[in-house]
């Protein structure tokens, strides 16, 4: 019994110490080991998933690469840890990864209680419905009594329940663990509609036996700002991740692409000169090389290029820019000035 008490005290002290320690200097750690360890999804096409050759592809993957380009000037100095929805936050808290770019929805409770800090949103998502045309449903408000295919254990499941309750409707959830199986069940007619993040619906429809038979309902029932996350309290590291994402957005605002970035080095526009590090200052302030934004754009492209390459209209996902267009084009992307 005494031994048990001692053990318990030790463990509790341990937890206390480890939670009390503020992890400082991720940048120094990362520089010392020579690469960034990023937590990614692993199964989500367009965001984080290995291709046939085992090479990582996706918007979140490229976001992590952008941070590597900013820190090391080399986008390949990043290693990826695939994480499940359950292991993702522990991996960040325990220091196993340096940055979490795994289509994580930023929420208040995650930001506070989990000891995380969310950075600049790199994708604005929302939840919608996919439904067979023959049902003749035109709006999600007409779905009373419908059976709904939904992934368990996600915010998706909660959102759809909230939506039905708020509108005084009944629903029969059909819960299936795996995205591919969920789509299959829906196409086989096991449920009336499928609900998922809007970023997935177009891609799911594309693999239907007859894609023309299905429509996406106009309602978006939830807000899903997907943002990279870092450990709470390391402000310098958070700034770096923040401005790595913002650099891609700012490059698009300034019309700089991976193809014309070398020409733009000669630009006389003071905004472009500051952004690309021709006029120094930004890099030093972040503790990075002055060329950090140049490296990001040169190696990965601006946000538009990254978007089109991974999830855009030429990919199987066929996603329009929508909310993820620049603010000048009616979207939500709006970069802080680089000065």
């Amino acid at each position: 019994m005494k031994l048990f008490k001692i053990c318990l005290t030790l463990i509790l002290t341990f937890i206390f110490i480890s939670s009390a320690t503020v992890m400082a200097g991720t940048l120094d750690d990362v520089k010392a080991k020579g690469y960034i360890q990023a937590g990614v999804n692993g199964d989500l096409f367009g965001f984080g998933k290995p291709d046939e050759k085992g090479e990582w592809k996706g918007l979140d993957v490229d976001t992590a690469r952008a941070v590597a380009a900013a820190v090391f000037g080399d986008a390949s100095k990043v290693k990826f840890t695939p994480l499940t929805a359950k292991t993702r936050f522990t991996a960040l808290q325990s220091g196993e990864i340096d940055v979490l770019t795994r289509n994580c929805t930023q929420t208040l409770s995650r930001d506070t209680a989990l000891g995380l800090d969310f950075c600049q949103v790199n994708y604005y998502d929302g939840q919608g419905f996919l439904i067979h045309k023959k049902l003749g449903v035109k709006s999600a408000k007409e779905l009373d009594g419908a059976s709904v295919c939904v992934l368990p254990g996600t915010t998706t499941e909660q959102n759809v329940a909230d939506f039905f309750r708020a509108n005084g409707m009944k629903m029969n959830p059909v819960v299936i663990e795996n995205t591919a199986e969920l789509a299959k069940a829906f196409f086989a007619g096991r449920c009336d509609c499928l609900t998922s993040d809007a970023s997935q619906l177009a891609g799911t429809r594309a693999v239907a036996p007859n894609p023309g038979d299905y429509i996406i309902l106009p309602e978006v029932i939830s807000k899903e700002p997907l943002a990279p996350a870092v450990r709470h309290g390391d402000n310098q590291w958070k700034d770096i991740v923040n401005y790595s994402v913002l650099a891609m957005i700012n490059a698009e605002e300034l019309g700089i692409t991976s193809k014309n970035v070398d020409e733009k080095l000669k630009s006389t526009d003071p905004k472009v000169k500051r952004f690309l590090g021709v006029s120094p200052g930004n890099g030093k302030a972040l503790g990075l090389d002055e060329k950090f934004a140049y490296n990001i754009v040169k190696q990965l492209g601006n946000y538009g290029e990254v978007f089109e390459r991974n999830v855009g209209t030429d990919t199987p996902l066929m996603i329009e820019r929508g909310l993820n267009a620049l603010w000048t084009n009616g979207g939500l992307l709006y970069s802080a000035p680089f000065k």
């Binding site: 998933k49 299959k184 799911t204």
Partner: peptide, 8 residues
Amino acid sequence: LSDPKWMG
């Protein structure tokens, strides 16, 4: 199987 190309 989560690749849209081979889903299903």
